[in-house]
Design a protein around this nucleic acid. Sequence first.
DNA 1: TTTTAAGCGAGACGGTACGTCCGGTCTTTTA
DNA 2: TAAAAGACCGGACGTACCGTCTCGCTTAAAA
Lengths: 203, 203, 203, 203
Amino acid sequence: MGSAGQRGRPRSGEADVRLLDAALALLLDRGYDRFSVDEVAAKAGVAKTTLYRRWPTKDHLIVAVVARLQDSVPVEYSGDVRSDLTRYLGEIAAGLDRMRRAGRPATSGETSAGLVAEVAAAAARHADVGAAVQAMFHRRNALVLALLGQARERGELHADVEPEVVFDQLAGALYYRLLITGRPLDAAYIDRLVGSALRGASA
Amino acid sequence: MGSAGQRGRPRSGEADVRLLDAALALLLDRGYDRFSVDEVAAKAGVAKTTLYRRWPTKDHLIVAVVARLQDSVPVEYSGDVRSDLTRYLGEIAAGLDRMRRAGRPATSGETSAGLVAEVAAAAARHADVGAAVQAMFHRRNALVLALLGQARERGELHADVEPEVVFDQLAGALYYRLLITGRPLDAAYIDRLVGSALRGASA
Amino acid sequence: MGSAGQRGRPRSGEADVRLLDAALALLLDRGYDRFSVDEVAAKAGVAKTTLYRRWPTKDHLIVAVVARLQDSVPVEYSGDVRSDLTRYLGEIAAGLDRMRRAGRPATSGETSAGLVAEVAAAAARHADVGAAVQAMFHRRNALVLALLGQARERGELHADVEPEVVFDQLAGALYYRLLITGRPLDAAYIDRLVGSALRGASA
Amino acid sequence: MGSAGQRGRPRSGEADVRLLDAALALLLDRGYDRFSVDEVAAKAGVAKTTLYRRWPTKDHLIVAVVARLQDSVPVEYSGDVRSDLTRYLGEIAAGLDRMRRAGRPATSGETSAGLVAEVAAAAARHADVGAAVQAMFHRRNALVLALLGQARERGELHADVEPEVVFDQLAGALYYRLLITGRPLDAAYIDRLVGSALRGASA
DNA sequence: TTTTAAGCGAGACGGTACGTCCGGTCTTTTA
DNA sequence: TAAAAGACCGGACGTACCGTCTCGCTTAAAA
């Protein structure tokens, strides 16, 4: 009753795991280019067809991998906007940092935004990948938008503060640094950033 | 005098122009992927060797093209920070918009950041391309940083405002929207953005 | 006694028919390549497993189909060797013609021997298919060999005529034309052929 | 003078040789199926593109290889039709024998016509391959047709003998045996065959 | 009536090869 | 020298198709 009834052989859950694991490993020590689908399949011990049944494109696969990388951001509220924002931006920066290292020799101090940029590019190439990427970021950001909204309602922020805009300014600055300027995303910068954003916002 | 003495056939200045033109045209109606070096050479009526003598890589070529797209931003100061910023961000948004359309059917209202992202990715792939990209943006931004600095000195902005951070917040928000969120960069948004940035900054 | 006794669900006779029909239809309008087992099953509305339970290989299936195509050659003796041979070779030629058209647009006057050759190739790939093919041809040819033998005994042919060799020459010429030369197998040719074969053979 | 003038880098003659050699070797010890284009290229130490520039298809390549296998049939006339025919058919049979062994373990006494059939099938799949195959056989057979024609003119054969038909009967018998019947092509059979063909033909 | 053996539908899976694409380099002839 | 032309190397991509496997379900004979 209710259940649709199983048709055909079910997809192998193990294949998913092995593929994503292999892909992640490969992505991290190769980077986007030099990442090859054939190699993922081989490393996972899975047929290429099985991979392509799940992700129709290298881009799709990589985005799935990245999503898994990013999807573990437990946030807790302390009630203090400044420290909450600082902590959250720190998490984002750390996440970007994990991606930043993909494909670069660990020793190289290079600030490479390659993977992030590639993901954005992939998002632009395929509409569905774009949707997935936006959803991924939306999930990540929803908490912070809520946090800003609550702070405003509590009177901790001016009434005319627009959470969305403020958030764009904060996150945007990080991405801009990473992708364009190439300057570091350290704690000091994050402090300055939060400070600047809250200067006019706090009541 | 002093000149090394020209040996052999001189480089054809015309080739440069034809190549860049062809590349631009192709880039605009194909986007980064589906843009092929062979095709550029063919369209320019120039040998591939000639192209590679000038730009050692597809990435290099494309960045050169993009630089030409972006490098015409004459800015004039009106003396009023708010309007100056608004105007300048408008210019940036317009430039991004030109790139945004690359390779997308004109009709599609899609907000595609493909080219921008690809350029960032290219910057991450080759150190020299990265330097060129940063220089390009640095040239664009220097004026605004100067503007903010002067406004601070004139007392129009608080003494503890950090121009660099404020600029990151402004430009970053635009790029974040474009690359990640995919939401529009219209005049209304720019107004809200400048408003938010100046709320706490103006004296 | 001896009989195993029927266990389990019996095979569906309908499936056989539907599969062979679908396969034949597909074979005729696609040819050997571009004939896909999946498509046969789909078209027959039958599971692939069901198909493979009957024919372990695409080759086996196709040979089964071809056998059905060829197995309807009722021959009657008139008593006159020349006319009997002519008639029989005409039947063979017609049968080959049916196969000849497989996968070719009806309009194309092309003399394509594709299917015949593919069957021969399949026969070479699998011993059992080879046996089946030989048996099929043996059935077809037995009658003619008998005919030649009787004519010899009746004195209509020289005593030293070897039916087997003569038959090879007749049938062989047809196949050689079809497979190698690509020239037409019309009635005129068959007459010349029989004439040539009987020149020295008839007493 | 008249020459078109060489443009661009000329094709590497060495590549041709290495590819054909590699392909032949592979074909002989694998047979048509299990013959892989990638492997040929690898074995020849040549890029796959280079191969595909010459032969657009596995079929084309294989036919080229087979043509080389068959194209060395120097025939000399002795003036005696019977012995000339016997010798020539012997050559054909030997050539077929070389192909017959392709892909079969040397030990196996199997009479496999695989490669011949595959070539015929390939000829049916692509019009241009078909033309090449016919040309190949035409070259081989022209000599014998001429021989038969001369013998007729010399009065060695009846005036109403049609060389073309006789030849079809002879060659056809060989191919029919090989492809369909699977019986051996030994010297004894060839003698019987020539005898049968000449019975009525010789004046 | 319950068990057991097998067939069936659906579709995922492993494996292999194909032919294509494209980036970048090399080898010619000609200017 | 540079330029034009085009072959070359290398490597990945995504597709196609074969034949096997794994489910859940159905059919009939056997216990």
